[in-house]
Amino acid sequence: MGSLNIGARKDSKSRLKEQSALGRRRRWNMNKPLIIMFLPIAVFFILFKYVPMFGFITAFKDYNFADGMFGSPWVGFDNYKYLFQNPDTLGIIRNTLVLSMLTVFVGFPFPVILAILLNEVRRSWFKRWAQTLLYLPHFLNWVIVGGLVLMMFSIETGFVNNIVERVTGSAYPFLFKEGSWITIFVASGIWKTAGWSAIIYLAALTSIDPSLYEAAGMDGAGKWKQIRHITIPGLMPTIILMFILNIGNVMDVGFDQVYVLQNPVVVNVAEVISTWNFKVGLGSGQFSYATAMGLFESLIGLTLVLIVNGIARRSGRGLW
């Protein structure tokens, strides 16, 4: 009996081995077409995403066109010494932070408020129309939105200044004063994005249990109290998540928005890293400075995302 048992065990073991060899071959056969499919994708990501990452060595070189990226002489951290000692470039880093912080902190409540208001609408035709119009600016690019802003606020023929002139007697150069330029910058960002961003909060609102509102209504809580004690706490997880995501993008003031709105008069507050890179790098061919600034921007961005995700993970809401 004993020997027979062992024999049987051996038999099953070798069969298992055979089976797993068969499984391996089967898996390989199933993988072959997938690998062929994925090959161009791998080439794409290596060539267009990973190869350029090595371009960051330009940040530590004195780039000249004759020697190219690899032949140009190494200069260590000299480019960074220049960037961090020059008041102009420091001002550009400051502008980037100021404009993006204002965009995040001032702009943040608007989509939440819009979602709460839309959620309280009872007439569905009104809700549909309001949503269609509020989402519309998201689909216009910054050239269009910038064009609208420049024309509305233009001194001679702008719609806004026509009204201002009628009331105060003289037009106001909105786009040529630093304070009003920053206000217009932030407001135009809100106008373009708030409606579309509200979609996420509207989706989160549908998951709040309606019986909570009924119970609160029975207990005599008015609309205002219901929003404060049911709607907002229900939205809190989404609010925190979106806030974290936005903080991660703080270094990333979109090029397009600044580029179309800025003018030489307000350049002290309106020049940011991306527009500076464009002018200094591609415009005047100073590749080393522009790459150094770009690398600095990317590293800060990556660090912020990692920190923010670490914090989020502690509360069980990390992205990975």
């Binding site: 350029p52 371009g55 330009t58 770009g294 990556l302």
Partner: peptide, 22 residues
């Protein structure tokens, strides 16, 4: 591994000049 390698390209980008040179 491949998914992670792809997601990483969303978090860290080379920047304007290296892309232009490529």
């Amino acid at each position: 591994f491949l998914t992670l390698a792809i997601v990483f390209t969303m978090l860290f980008t080379a920047g304007l000049i290296p892309n232009y040179l490529l």
